[in-house]
């Protein structure tokens, strides 16, 4: 239970970083932290006490996996979500570089041409 709570704490920390920090690099770090907290949560969903990796190796009975193996689906989901996170991160960093090129600053409060 405490682990689920820690995932939530991580999520809230990421959101705080996203909202309170003005530096756009720190905002990006905030987004990444929230994403990883969700990934952690997903892995915890599939976890069970004394579980083994859901991979069939040589000399292993299939029933052993069914009895002890952790749920493989959340792990597949986490992998997909990590890949998506990588894509979003690359896009964010490149937009961030372009923003610096145009505005000469990483401070979000000075990047405010659009308003209203």
């Amino acid at each position: 239970m405490i682990l689920y709570f820690l995932a939530l704490v991580l999520f809230v920390m990421g959101l705080y970083c996203l909202v309170a920090k003005k530096n756009i690099i720190k905002k990006i770090i905030g987004i990444v932290i929230t994403e990883y907290s969700i990934n952690l949560f997903l892995v915890l969903v599939g976890w069970r006490k004394g579980g083994i990796a859901p991979i069939l190796l040589k000399g292993m009975q299939k029933s052993e996996i069914v009895e002890k193996g952790v749920d493989p689906l959340p792990q597949a989901l986490v992998l997909t979500s990590i890949v998506i996170g990588l894509g979003v991160l690359a896009l964010m960093v490149s937009i961030c570089l372009r923003l610096y090129e145009k505005y000469k600053t990483f401070d979000m409060s000075e990047i405010n041409r659009l308003r209203g």
Binding site: S94, L97, R98, E101
Partner: peptide, 19 residues
């Protein structure tokens, strides 16, 4: 694609050296 992202962000980011 990971190598291309690396190249784009580091070497070909003509703005990076300027940055």
């Amino acid at each position: 694609s990971v190598f291309a992202v690396f190249l784009t962000l580091s070497i070909f980011g003509r703005f990076v050296s300027k940055l």
